[in-house]
Nucleic acid binder design. Structure first.
Ligand code: ATP
Length: 752
DNA sequence: AATGACAGGCTTTTT
DNA sequence: GCCTGTCATT
């Protein structure tokens, strides 16, 4: 079947309209991404456009990944040429690495992530003698970012400051900008802004990129901010074969500057523009689609659009209400475990509003022995030990990068403390030089106490050695040198704690990533850029069929089964949005996005009682208003509640017993609590069977939950323990290996 | 300078 | 409840 036959008439028209500006406006699941990907394939295969002349961009990594894999599935490209499919940010990095020097950007600039940015802001606050209590670094940073994205310089910001507080923010902003310049560093905002500046100021470069990418496609156009819009404008000066697709009902990034004007004024900015609407949804069953449409219809600031599906009516949208968060998560895990038996290959997503909500679900899934994959959250590259080592690499490439330098200067501890660092920082500020320069000067002219100098000297030598390593040596080679010289692993091993071993694992993972990168022929800088931009968590368990992620990350994806959990006032809609009508509408769109990810089954859940920061007393929640916006006829209540069952509040029976975690003597109070909840959940009288087991020789063997090491499989966690005596069998989840069932007696396990 | 105990605040959401 | 930042102790 040919490419075009797999499209409906409107989609087909959108794909064939290759020349001139085109805006596609359409609801969820109507094939917007399909149009983008087919269009790329069509251009390459039918119109003979060289793949490298096609640029497809979007905002999030996940959405870019989705696009990339779908394009790849569609075209069989000869040779190495590939269309450039990425996020705006990666695109800009590539542009700036190549042509940044033309606007005075150092070629080896560092990219500062939020953590780095905060360090800079804090240091500026300190230098200005401002107390963080009054001016929170995070708040200042968000003001700075907002100002930058609205084209305000520190000076303009200062002039517009309405109160003394804002004036101070303006001063911090100025210092912040100066610090970044001095560190040869750019933040995420700068990546876009500097790329725009480059294209604006250098006509020659602008022309080059215009010619290089005569075909540009933008997915999730409703998420673009003004800077990204500007970038697209600058790339479409000589030709306007621009295809933007979007859905105003899925605009969920206004809090970081996404601006619907980009969509609304598209026709104004591109007078030749054609607009095509897609109205058939191919993804979801009618119940799911109707429910989602009913919710979003409550938004007032919206034009409204048609969306229908030819799919047969499926199951109703499920609704489960549990007594507390734990029960809610166990319901989900149990439901999944049962479903798994019928269809072991089905993809399932658990979606939530905030990253913090993932914990309960991870725990529940682990208990059921289900493999899962968490997207986002504390990403791999954000872990302290990983960032420490990356800091060595960043500093090795760019010694002006003081944040990275300061990050690795005393990790592992080498006798350079805050006093020494503060002193040097002061000197640097005074001389208006970088930390590295001042450090060298201090050593040479003996400007510090001998003890400090003695500690600084070896550090300086190490960094010089790293810098001297050839630019094309890969990340892994340099990392190895760092590890050897600093005895990083050894000192962690000596620590001997489970946390330390966890860190060792992460470092091993980093070494693997670096080695892979080297094999692909990437330079150190490319490796670092990837680490900075693709803050993608646990890329290792990607084949797990159960995905946990925020509603934001889920946009653009689809799953046969979707759980939308925590459907409560305060969570969805989030409490921070209750004050203002526009924010509330955005929450509603978020709900819409989540619901429309589902293909065949959608289940909404909530907990009646929710602990907000856990320790605090549990509060009774109110059901999300979005639930009541779904017509009752589309909902099916999954929480049957017979009133006369005494203790047993919920009739729902587990299909397999949750794995007991009460055996080891080292259980924490929190886990005891969980067990108590499980028991209540299953309607068992409090504390009956398990405590008996607790008494049974807990010292021998490895209770569920203990961390172990196996000579062949490495480190892992015991999930389940069955049988007794010589026959005792353990189910262990080994990192990077997966589940293994072992006879305890022969397994040769070591406690860690 | 390094370590450990304690207080306080924190959670939107992404690059 | 957990992480971070601060303080006191060695
Ligand atoms: N003409 C078609 N024939 C068959 N399947 C289609 C067609 N158009 C779209 N689909 C399928 O419908 C699903 C949704 O399409 P797609 O992801 O492109 O929609 P979308 O508009 O980008 O959705 P969203 O905005 O919700 O992310 C995909 O599985 C896609 O393959």
């Amino acid at each position: 079947m040919s490419l075009l036959d797999q499209l409906n008439p409107q989609q087909r028209e959108a794909v064939e309209t290759t020349d001139g500006p085109l805006l596609i406006l359409a609801g969820a699941g109507s094939g917007k991404t399909r149009v983008i990907t087919y269009r790329v394939a069509y251009l390459a295969e039918y119109r003979g456009v060289p793949a490298e002349n096609i640029l497809a961009v979007t905002f999030t990594n996940k959405a870019a990944e989705e696009m990339r894999s779908r394009v790849q599935g569609l075209i069989r490209l000869p040779g190495l040429a590939r269309p450039w499919v990425s996020t705006f940010h990666s695109f800009c990095v590539r542009v700036l690495r190549r042509d940044g020097p033309r606007i005075g950007l150092p070629r080896d600039f560092s990219i500062y992530d939020e953590d780095d940015q905060l360090r800079v802001v804090k240091s500026c606050l300190r230098q200005l003698g401002l107390v963080e209590k009054e001016l929170q670094a995070r708040a200042v940073l968000s003001r700075i970012s907002h100002a930058k994205n609205h084209g305000r310089s520190p000076e303009t910001f200062y002039l517009h400051a309405s109160d003394p507080m804002m004036e101070r923010v303006a001063v911090v902003y100025e210092e912040y900008a100066k610090a970044l310049r001095q560190a040869h560093a750019v933040d995420f905002d700068d990546l876009l802004l500097e790329a725009v500046r480059l294209l604006r100021e250098d006509a020659e470069v602008a022309l080059q990129y215009n010619q290089r990418y005569p075909y540009i496609l933008v997915d999730e156009y409703q998420d673009t901010n003004r800077t990204q819009y500007e970038l697209v404008r600058l790339l479409t000066q000589t030709q306007q074969n621009l295809c933007a697709v979007g859905d105003e009902d899925q605009s969920i990034y206004s809090w970081r500057g996404a601006d619907l004007r980009n969509i609304v004024e598209f026709e104004k900015d591109y007078p030749q523009a054609r607009i095509i609407r897609l109205e058939q949804n191919y993804r979801s069953t009618p119940s799911i689609l109707d429910a989602a449409s009913a919710v979003v219809a409550n938004n007032r600031y919206r034009k409204g659009k048609t969306l229908w599906t030819a799919r047969q009516s499926g199951q109703k949208v499920g609704y489960y209400e549990g007594p507390d968060g734990e029960n809610e998560s166990l319901f989900v895990a149990d439901w999944i475990a049962r479903r798994r038996r019928q269809d072991p290959d089905e993809k399932i997503a658990i979606l939530y509003r905030t990253n913090a909500q993932s914990r309960l679900y991870e725990e529940a899934l682990r208990r059921y022995g289900l493999k899962y994959h968490v997207v986002g959250g504390v990403s791999f590259y954000e872990r302290a030990e990983v960032k420490d080592l990356l800091a060595y690499l960043k500093a090795a490439r760019n010694l002006q990068d003081s944040v990275s330098l300061l990050r690795c200067i005393n990790s592992p501890p080498r006798g350079i403390g805050t006093t020494t660092v503060r002193k040097l920082e002061e000197m640097a500020l005074e001389a208006n030089r970088s930390f590295w320069d001042i450090m060298g000067q201090a050593i040479e002219q003996k400007l510090l106490p001998p003890r400090s100098l003695q500690a600084l000297q070896p550090f300086r030598e190490l960094m010089e050695e790293l810098r001297a390593m050839p630019a094309e040596s890969g990340a892994s080679e340099i990392l190895k040198t760092v590890m050897e010289r600093t005895r990083y692993l050894e000192s962690l091993e000596e620590e001997g704690t489970p946390e330390a071993f966890g860190r060792i694992e992460n470092i091993q993972e980093l070494l693997n990533a670096a080695a892979d990168s080297h094999e692909r022929g990437e330079t150190l800088i490319q490796f670092l850029d990837h680490a900075a931009l693709v803050s993608d968590a646990d890329s290792y368990d990607e084949n797990a069929l159960i995905s946990l992620m925020t509603l934001h990350s889920a946009k653009g994806l689809e799953f046969p089964v979707v759980f939308l959990v925590g459907m409560e006032e305060g969570l969805l809609p989030h409490s921070r949005s209750l004050m203002n009508a526009e924010a509330l509408e955005e929450e509603r769109r978020l709900c819409y996005v989540g619901m429309t990810r589902a293909q065949d089954a959608l289940i909404l859940t909530r907990a009646v009682s929710r602990r907000h920061y856990a320790s605090a007393m549990a509060e009774t929640s109110r059901a999300s208003r979005f639930l009541s916006e779904i017509p009752a006829s589309l909902l099916q209540d999954l929480s049957k509640r017979p009133a006369d069952r005494g203790e047993r509040h919920y009739e729902y029976e587990p299909s397999e017993p949750a794995l007991s975690k009460v055996e080891g003597p080292e259980e924490t109070a929190e886990q005891e609590d969980s067990v108590e909840n499980v028991r209540r959940f299953f309607g068992l009288p409090a504390g009956r069977s398990e405590p008996v087991k607790t008494k049974r020789k807990p010292q021998t063997g490895f209770p569920a939950g203990s961390r172990v090491r196996h000579p062949k499989f490495g480190y892992g966690t015991v999930l389940r323990r069955e049988g007794a005596g010589d026959d005792t069998k353990l189910t262990v989840n080994f990192h990077g290996v997966g589940l293994k069932k072992l006879v305890e007696k022969y397994a040769d396990l070591e406690r860690v």
